[in-house]
Nucleic acid binder design. Structure first.
Lengths: 141, 141
DNA sequence: TATAAGGATTCCAGTGACTGGAAGGTCAAG
DNA sequence: CTTGACCTTCCAGTCACTGGAATCCTTATA
């Protein structure tokens, strides 16, 4: 099958498949007489693996590692789990950061009248009611 | 004060301040005789505003809008609140997406022995136990 | 058989928000 | 007068694609 069909079968855009080939995430595809990339079921499975891993937030580098592990029949599940755990912590960190943002922002929003008047706790906070602590300005001029 | 001092005073790296100037987020700074950028308290306050807004996850474009609003004495808090609310929804969307990832990944991790053996539910899921539904493969060759 | 449509190919550029580094200019202290 | 800290500009790289232009291949139809 051609790249378009493989794209539809895997859920990865053709452009992205070419990109994955270019960066070495996947092997260069075989070519037809007319220089078209040719894919088989095996390649599509790999592509789906990649798509699923990406959808779980793994970086392309991590996906490369996962692919290696997947293909390595003598792998230990320990290594896979470690990789996944590292990523999980990553996600947890991001969630925590977003939650902090969210809560701060939400509090500000709740305190804002949201009417025609200009005075606004959101802007007030951004302008300095916030964390302007521990900042020592040395005057050099 | 010079850019390094303004950087320390605002918490924004000198490089980033130059970048903000380049993209037009802030006005080009005055220059000294030796062509050094010169900043005053006013500029530092703007920089701090930007830093705080960025730390709440606003994009640079949104920060530009917030700066406009901040400077506009005839603004309505309604507009600020609307902008903040849009961003809040954005954050909520991201949190939700990350949580979904997190839960899926966590479940997979919990089912993984994490020992010397190769069999691993994480890889099994990536390889296709997952959402391979609604995918119609038309055979064109 | 000509041609048109719908793929495919390569290559270049842009996204967002910086960050690193090279090559060189400026300034204050010793 | 030199040293070292700081500043300048400019170019490149990050991450993971995505858009678009110009051109080529394949297949179906008039």
């Amino acid at each position: 099958m051609n790249i378009g069909t493989a794209a539809r079968a895997s859920g990865i855009p053709a452009k992205t498949i070419r990109y994955y080939e270019e960066i070495g995430l996947i092997q260069p595809a075989e070519r037809s007489d007319g220089n078209y990339r040719v894919y088989g079921e095996h390649e599509v499975q790999t592509l789906r693996f990649i798509r699923r891993a990406r959808s779980l937030g793994f970086s392309v580098d991590e996906v490369a590692e996962l692919l290696d592990l997947w293909r390595d029949r003598s792998r230990s599940s320990r290594r896979v789990k470690a990789l996944a755990n590292r990523h999980l912590e990553d996600i947890d960190g991001k969630i925590a950061a977003l939650k902090t943002m969210r809560d701060t922002l939400n509090e500000l929003i709740e305190r804002c009248h949201g009417d025609a008047r200009p005075d606004c706790p959101i802007l007030a906070d951004l302008a300095g009611q916030g964390d302007v602590a521990d900042m020592e300005v040395e005057k050099s001029d």
